[in-house]
Simulated assay, not measured.
Amino acid sequence: MDIKKIGYTTGVFDMFHVGHLNLIKRAKEQCDYLIVGVTTDELVSYKNKKAIIPHKERMEIVENIKYVDQVVPQVNMNKMEAWKKYNFDVMFVGSDWKGTEKWNEYEKQFASIGVDIIYFPYTKGTSSTQLRETLEKIKNIEIAATK
């Protein structure tokens, strides 16, 4: 029997861009089977934001990426609960979480069960935050033009 290395990553994946694609592609390069959790609209509020693209559509976008083997809804931020459900061998996450109290704790918990955490640097350039800021500027310009 061939044992596969299962990887897991999560994200909002709102306004999907090349940074999202790079994360998923790099994750797939380091595992045989990649599970991607797409954050539900309700959970997006942890970023004090509202998703522009509805959850169902974000799930469909991610499902159609050739590097993704399985897409699941991310309904909470508890990564240990996700491990119990999906039994992955490695977790992929953005480097902006490295060294935080929450992820230091996850590192300890995952190490005790043999799960690796791999941090990927953010892709320089486009980000969802930058896209939101640009949209807001355009909206403000349009509002000012109508006055």
Rank of each mutant, 00 (worst) to 15 (best):
N140K: 15
D69L: 05
N48I: 11
G114M: 01
M59G: 05
A111S: 15
T40V: 08
K47H: 13
W83Q: 04
I35D: 02
Y106S: 02
Y67F: 14
A144R: 13
D96N: 09
I65L: 15
D14A: 05
I53N: 03
K47F: 13
N64P: 00
S112W: 06
K108N: 14
D69V: 04
I35Q: 01
V68C: 00
N76G: 14
Y8L: 03
K56A: 15
T9M: 13
E105D: 15
M80A: 13
T9Y: 00
L131M: 04
I61T: 10
K137H: 04
K47G: 05
D96P: 10
V44Q: 04
A145F: 07
R132F: 07
E42H: 09
T129H: 06
K49A: 01
F110E: 04
K25C: 07
M59W: 08
A144L: 07
R26Q: 15
K5F: 06
E107P: 05
Q130V: 00
T40D: 01
K85L: 15
T10H: 02
E81M: 13
D69I: 05
P121L: 11
T9R: 00
N78F: 09
A144C: 03
T146I: 14
I3G: 00
S95F: 06
A51Y: 00
W97N: 06
N22W: 12
Y119D: 04
N22P: 07
D32G: 10
D14H: 05
Q130Y: 08
F120T: 02
K98C: 08
V75N: 12
P121C: 12
N87I: 08
N64M: 06
V93A: 10
T100K: 06
Y122F: 15
Y86E: 08
V18C: 11
G19K: 11
L131N: 03
E133H: 07
Q109S: 10
M80R: 07
E29T: 12
Y106D: 00
K108W: 09
C31A: 03
T134N: 11
V36N: 00
Y122R: 15
D2T: 12
E133G: 06
K50V: 11
L21G: 03
K5G: 00
S95P: 07
K4P: 06
N48A: 09
L43E: 04
K5D: 01
L43G: 01
W83D: 01
R26W: 06
E105A: 13
T100E: 01
K102T: 14
L135F: 01
L135K: 05
D69N: 15
N48T: 11
T123A: 09
G114E: 08
L43P: 03
K25I: 12
E136L: 14
A111R: 14
